[in-house]
Amino acid sequence: MLEARLEQSSVLKKVVDAIKDLVQDCNFDCNDSGIQLQAMDNSHVALVAMHLKTEGFALYRCDRNIALGINLVSLQKVLRAAQNEDVMTLKAEDSPDALSLVFENSENDRISEYDLKLMDIDQEHLGIPETEYGATVKMPSAEFQRICRDLSLLSESVAIEATKEGIKFSCTGDIGKGAVTLRQNPNVEKPELGTTIELQEPVALTFSLKYLVNFCKASGLSNTVTISLSNEVPLLIEYEMEHGYVRFYLAPKIGD
């Protein structure tokens, strides 16, 4: 059986907020390394991979591998009943038809108990190869979100170019064009506010802004985001948590 306790409900709430617009139904795979999820969007353009590691749980017990088939819209309805600071306990049997969720406030005088019906989801898992990326950029997640939102008002797609000068996001649309260039600028006192660029080779790729704006819904998970790019391979956008991550992969646009 599974028994997993999070000190703060906000962790799972933020994870679900981050991915619910990309995927609807997905398996939460529970095993002795924690809770993992891998799912593609309907059009097979993007893939999300999430891992909440056991170290992030106040209590974690999972004797066997258990797949929790969850509709994320339904899960979000239940999670709405949890306050951010509530302790959350997830419980499921070995072959569960429901997931039990218990939310307790810090004063220990309120206990909320919910059951979420589970589904059978036949999900394909993709092997993600180890990749040496041509460029890896670490920057404030809020800044990346702002750039994607601003450019999405002008165009459907964005060109991302990483060179030794910096990383440039540019787009062209019906009303005009726009570009934002970030130069390497490490912040010694507050590293989370700085931008660092590791460059092996120059990279230039084009991506759909609709997806990037969607990924930015994970900004609440981390102050920083890591963007990894190589020519002609999917973009990797990673939000690292204290004990886990949410990673998004996005297939580039092709041809010209």
Binding site: M40, E124, P129, A251, I254
Partner: peptide
């Protein structure tokens, strides 16, 4: 015009 790539052409099924 540009087309949208498919993630499954980069990552193989396990």
């Amino acid at each position: 015009a540009t087309g949208q790539g498919n993630i499954m052409s980069f990552f193989q099924k396990k």
